[in-house]
Structures are given as C-alpha cells and as structure tokens.
Design a protein around this nucleic acid. Sequence first.
DNA 1: CCCTTGCCATAGGTGATCCCTAGGGATCCC
DNA 2: GGGATCCCTAGGGATCACCTATGGCAAGGG
Lengths: 305, 305
Amino acid sequence: MLSLHQLTCFLATYEHRSLTRAAEELGYAQPSVSEQVRGLERSLGVQLFRRVGRGVVPTTAADTFRPHAERVLAAADDAERAVASIRSLETGTIRFGMFGVARLYGGADLVADVLARYPGVRVELVGRHSMDVPENLRRGRLEAAMIAVAALSSEGMSITPIARDELVYVSADPSKLTAPVTAKRLAEADLVMPESTLRDFDSGRIVLRRMLHEAGYNPSTRIEVEDVETAIELVGRGLADTVTNKGAALQLLPRLAPNAGWVPLRPRVYDTMAIVHRAGATLSPAARLMIELATQRIQGIIEPL
Amino acid sequence: MLSLHQLTCFLATYEHRSLTRAAEELGYAQPSVSEQVRGLERSLGVQLFRRVGRGVVPTTAADTFRPHAERVLAAADDAERAVASIRSLETGTIRFGMFGVARLYGGADLVADVLARYPGVRVELVGRHSMDVPENLRRGRLEAAMIAVAALSSEGMSITPIARDELVYVSADPSKLTAPVTAKRLAEADLVMPESTLRDFDSGRIVLRRMLHEAGYNPSTRIEVEDVETAIELVGRGLADTVTNKGAALQLLPRLAPNAGWVPLRPRVYDTMAIVHRAGATLSPAARLMIELATQRIQGIIEPL
DNA sequence: CCCTTGCCATAGGTGATCCCTAGGGATCCC
DNA sequence: GGGATCCCTAGGGATCACCTATGGCAAGGG
C-alpha cells in the first residue's frame, strides 16, 4: 500500500541524491528513510535508485515517478489546507436551522452578519423554506437550530433558552384592541392559526392551549393555515383575528396588515426562543458562530432571558 | 500525518453513509474503519461525521473535504499506473550507453527497433554525442552500455563479450590494398587515428599497439582526430591511412570515403564488442531489452562470439 | 598504496499503529 | 417491548516506524 510518507521520503531523496541528507531534511535517522524508500520500491515493483558507492542515483523510473509523486503530495496539501480554512471559518458552508417563528427573526440580516465577518463562507438557513428542521436535527443532518419551544426538555436534545417572546392578540378591528384579551374573549374569538408541522417543538399553540385550559375553555380555531405570514394577511383582511408572537407581529403587521394592531393577553403568555441541538454533542465553530450571531439578533428584537 | 488509507476509509464511509458498509466494501472490520476515520478527523482537527444513532452523517466539512480526498487518491492511482506502465515498458525512458565505435552500430535502426516494439517509450542513446559513457557507468548514472573493450576485465564492472570486430587497414591508395598489412608496413604508414577520451575502455588502439609491440615496432600516428568519421574522411582525401573496425569501415567508407578501400592486417587483429554494467547489479527490464536488441543488431553486422 | 571519510545496508530493540474479536449502548422498526 | 442494526469501547496480537550501533564499500587525500 502506497503511503504519503513514502512519497515524501522519495522526493527528499531524489532531490538530495542522498538518503542521509534526505533524512536530515526530514528529521529522521538515515535507516528510516532508507526503509521507506525500499518499501516504496517494493510496492511499486520498480527500482527507484541505484545504490552506488557514495550516494544514490535515480533511475529513469524515478524520473518518471517524481512528478506524479509531487502531484499526489500537492493534492494532499490542498486537501489539508481546504479543511484548515473550514476550521478557521475562512470558507466552507455553514448550515443552521431556524424553524417556525424563529425564522422570521433570522432573515437576510443574519446572513449578512455572517457574510460580513466571514466573506468566504456559504450560509444555508435550513427551515426558511422547509418544514423539517426538527426532523433534520433529530436525524443529525443539522447540527443546531434556533426554534420556539414549549417544553424546555425534549428527549436527547439540549435546549438552551435565549429569549422570551410574548404572545399577543392581533386584530384589524380597533374595538377589540382596547384592552388586554382574556381567556374568555380568546375562546370566543374567530381565530386563524398557523399550523406548524411539528407540535412537539413549536410552542405558540401549546402555550396558548394551556392558558385556555387553565381558564376552563377549549381552543377553537376557525381557520388553519400553513404559516404565520398567511395568518397575518388574513387578519389584515378582517376575516379573523390571531394570536402570535409579539416579535412576529411587530415585524409582519406593517407589511402584511397595516390596518391591524395588537394587544397583550391577560394573563401574559410567553413563547420561549431557544437553541436546540443533540444532547452531548460538541458544536463546530461554524455552529457556535451561527448560534452567537442569531442569539444577538434575537435578543435585540425580543426580550432576553 | 495524513494517510491514503485514511482517505480511502473516509470516502467509502462518505458514500455509504455507514462505517459498517464501508468496512464491508474495504474488507475490514468495522472498528478498523472507525479508527481510521477518527484518526483522520483528529489529524485534520475537524469532525467529518456526526455519529447519530444508526449510521453516520457527513458534516459540511466532510462535504468540502471529499472532492479533495478524491483528487489525492486519483493522483496516487495515476502515479502507480505510471510506474506500472514503466515496468511493462509501455512508457518511460530507456537510457543506454554506446561508446566509441559501438555507437556506429546502434544508430537510428536500433532506436527504430525499440520504438517498433514499444511505441510509448522514449529512447536515449547516451554516448552518441557525449564522451563520458564509462564515467557515467562507473558513477551509476547509466545502467548498462555497449562498448568496444580491450581488456575483458575491469574493476567492479561486469563485461560480457558479444561479438568480435576485425581491425582493418583503410586507405585511398589502391597500391596499399593489394595485400594484408603487416606490422612492419603499419609502423611505416602515415596514420590518422581517432583519439578516444577513455583509454581504459576503447580498445582499438590498445590492441593495435600490442600487435606492433609484439613485432618490435612502436606505433606512431601522424594525425589525431576526435572521432572515427573524421579519420575516415581524411583517408578519403588521401591525407593519411587509418586502421579501424571492419564494421565501421563497411558502414562509413561508402559514405565518407568512396574512393578508399580496406585490407585485413596480418596477423589478424580483433576488437571485442561487449555489454558492460556494474558488477552485481540486477538489470532493469528496459536495460535488458536494450541489451538484447543491441546484441542482435551487432551480431547481424559483425562476427558473433 | 593505505588510511580516512562519507554513505548506505543490516541488526536488534522499542513504541506506535493496524486490525481483529467481543461486548455495550442507542436507535429504529415491528 | 423485543429484535435488528449500527456505532463505540476494550483489549490483544501482528506489523510497522523509528531509533542506535555497526559493518561494508567507494572516493579522495596523504
């Protein structure tokens, strides 16, 4: 079996026309280099040097082999350098999950933050257009993600809360926005709610359901839609009201439902934004970077914990 | 230290998304592949796979690393193939020494012979335009050579005679060609002789001197020139006579001295053509090929031994 | 011509590495 | 929950890489 070490020894020997000087250059004893070269000759089935009195003389086989050997070592060097530049975040791809409302907080600005600090990297925000962040997390295809969680524990997952996001009542009807909304009024309202694919993780509805239950009501939604934006748009058209994260409301209302407004719930209800990754995993520098930047952004928008 | 073995294991694992299947493909036990991959990760300082329950998942670092790893292995493969094709004489350079008059017998035709049998090889006939074949042989820069030798033993050299070449007297004066030339007449003649740089090996003059000494004469040459061709040309112009190998005379006279002819010496004197290489060396296939073909050619021209 | 010097090969020993088998823990599917 | 799958760890044997010490051979200088 060919080895890079053999090639290194071969090239040093070829250049110096001497095993002794090659060994000096490489920092080995002379017999070690001799052994490597002999092993290479054996595995190639060709004599590379004629041992002649003082010094060694490359054969034509060695002449032919040398450029190939150099190419192999150059390629190996390249490979190592490529990885080194990943390690120092000079290049490579950073993939990070942002699911549910979290994705509203980590848009183009977050990507821009990363690119500003590390111009060479590619960034993928998984979850922006795909619904399977938790699945990817669980299966290990994604290293870490930021999501809104209801329960602060989930099997095999390490969940680090970083901010809380109040849930608010959103309506296009100003008369409904005069006072905080109680559980009673909430239960009576016509609501449009986004349906999140993964119940275990997305928390808005779980938290809300708990609040209603505690007050003796059952949640009833009139409309189910895929994502928050659609819900907000429907509110803007006056077709229903909704409950959503305050951060999302602040961000989406001006754009999607300028005529709508919001009031807090009574009692106040909070959603928790958290960093989630597999328990026990040590995170890569890339993941740590994304977590740090995403956390900064989120905590700038909503209430830090 | 990076190793090709690690890269092989990495790629198999990457493709199968499984250490077990990679091990199967490579014919190892699973822990062995696992160890190689772990070693690679350690030496690169980067995690390449996330171990997640069943199976392993490549990280983005692995995605980046993979094409580089493939290039390294491809280059290594190339290198091995290049050598294999040398070994089977499909390609590579064959370098062979032909010194003194021997070079007259191994010209374009010999090269053509080799190229016909092995279209991919390069051929170098050292000595055609350089005078240091014996030096190169002694220093090991040349593996083998065909030369005309006087003594059949030389320190550290293995000398295999393959043919004998009669020395003949060459003149443009027909009156001198009526009978074999004796030592007496030789000693009286105006001779032009090629001066070979290496006396130990080139034999024509040594043999000749011995013949004269035995008859009680001293050799005296009127003109010394560098090579045989020049000597023959001078004979053609009638400026002197010469003594040279019969093979050389047959080959050169029609071209360089059409008006000249030759007669044998009396007693007859022979030069010996031989294959020379370092004693105790095992010859490469390329060298053996050259020896075989050169021998065939020579024995077709002059008298085999 | 011998003697020194330079260089490669061999010998023998030590620690690391390669690769195995056996068994434990996690996950997935039924 | 139980079986199957797949990874990891542990531990042991063979091999390999590297060392120092030494011998042989060629080159070069008194």
